[in-house]
Nucleic acid binder design. Structure first.
Lengths: 253, 253
DNA sequence: GAGACTGGAATGAACACTCACTCAGTTTCT
DNA sequence: AGAAACTGAGTGAGTGTTCATTCCAGTCTC
């Protein structure tokens, strides 16, 4: 949709060849880019602005990145590979602690803390990821979602282990993992609503208690569930969802 | 940054005057727009595409909306006013049930169900809101966040009432409200990870149990908190966050 | 040390293209 | 007929990207 000339070939000359310099340059540009992206969004940020903020000329930006999209991709990749790294490491840690017969609760909290610390560190990237995945290729988008799925699976494994040990009640593992993940991420994604917590630990410390409550929650039926009767429909506003039936432009009818 | 011609004056002729027709048209267009926006994002969707999908010409679209941005605004406003409507209604319901001495738990669940039903209904709008608020004016953006804040405040009120009644333990009200809100919203925002739940109730039913666990969770210190020691730093990937110090382009040094 | 040479890197005007938006003319409705 | 609504080629601002040119830190020569 954008100019986007299809260009498989790399540019013949004037690429930055010095590896160190290249990486420093990429970091410079990426760092300028992310703050602008978070401020105005990817599409409302022009390469010229990025260049200016990074302190170089438009042309130079394209010596470091092949396209604007590659900058976004670079940023998201960075955060994903960090997450992937953590996952690997924590999987190993998990196996180790399992041998030590650490209590499942402790074990979970240990991993959870680590994950929360990571989301805190990568807060800006997480927000970017949530907002701008649409701007990626469909396949790239999928890759990112798969990454998150792996983390959720890991959480599920931990919970399952706890269930095996009899530490947590059985049932709803999938849901619980989802909830715990979402709550950790919300520190990044909904950070504006959490300003009363000045730093991660202020949030994480009480959250851990809640997390444990979730883990240990029995899958029992709630007694006396109110199956909402008394809630009349809100019809103060026009419906927009499915206006299809009506009002074709006259000539088309 | 985009063409964005600033145009305060309405066009002199050829506006759609018939109120009913105008609204139907707006709905038509909005409905076409939202599915495209969700598919490719706001910026990757052109007005031409919207027009085509809505079954009219480009020009006509601008008889109904003054700008492309107004379409986005219309969509987000719609979902917000729905939420606001629900809030009003539920506040009233809350007062009523309080008189009836309904148990706080039941009371909460009643409201929570209603809220979940709303997010389900407005699922597509919620996703849009999360992804595209960046494309709005800063003041408009703020208005939306304030709306969500009001809902969270309402949740807080309900919890506080429960605490007064001795049904829930004191403490962490703000946090709990946040968590419950986020979990309900995640049905919309992270719907792709919840495909194993085919419809809202499959998700909501077990979630309610977890929600109650959260509500009733004591703010006690966790015994034996592991203060993560054994987690070595991940340094497999370059840091991107603060590359500022190094490598100014030569002429600028 | 002065001067010429080298080539990687930086530059920014120019290019090709997209897209929101306009408006003169046409169609449809009453 | 006249008003209301629709149409779509046209406009121009704005964009990502290119590339001929300039710059400059070294290196070689004398």
């Amino acid at each position: 949709m954008k100019p986007q000339v299809l260009r498989k070939k790399r540019k013949p000359t004037s690429q930055v060849t010095d590896e160190k310099r290249l990486q420093q340059g990429k970091d410079r540009i990426a760092s300028a880019a992310i703050s602008l992206f978070l401020l105005d969004g990817y599409h409302n940020t022009s390469v010229r602005e990025i260049a200016q903020k990074a302190g170089l000329s438009v042309g130079s930006v394209f010596n470091y990145f092949i396209s604007k999209e590659e900058i976004l991709f670079f940023l998201l990749s960075y955060s994903q590979s960090r997450a992937e790294g953590m996952l690997q490491e924590q999987r190993a840690e998990f196996e180790r602690l399992k041998q030590d017969e650490t209590s499942p609760r402790k074990l979970f909290l240990c991993v959870y803390e680590r994950y929360a610390a990571l989301t805190d560190e990568l807060r800006r990237y997480a927000v970017l990821a949530y907002q701008e995945t649409k701007s990626l290729t469909r396949t790239e988008r999928k890759r990112f979602l798969e990454g998150e799925e792996r983390i959720q699976n890991f959480f599920e494994d931990i919970i399952a282990h706890g269930v095996e040990q009899g530490a947590f009640p059985a049932g709803n593992i999938h849901l619980k993992a989802h909830c715990l993940l979402v709550l950790a991420q919300s520190w990044a994604v909904r950070h504006w609503a959490l300003t009363s917590f000045t730093k991660l630990d202020d949030y994480l410390e009480p959250l851990k208690t809640l997390a444990v409550s979730i883990l240990e929650s029995e899958a029992s039926e709630l007694q006396g569930v109110p199956t909402l009767v008394a809630t009349q429909k809100v019809q103060s506003v026009r419906k927009v969802q499915t206006p299809d039936p009506i009002s074709l432009p006259r000539r088309m009818a």
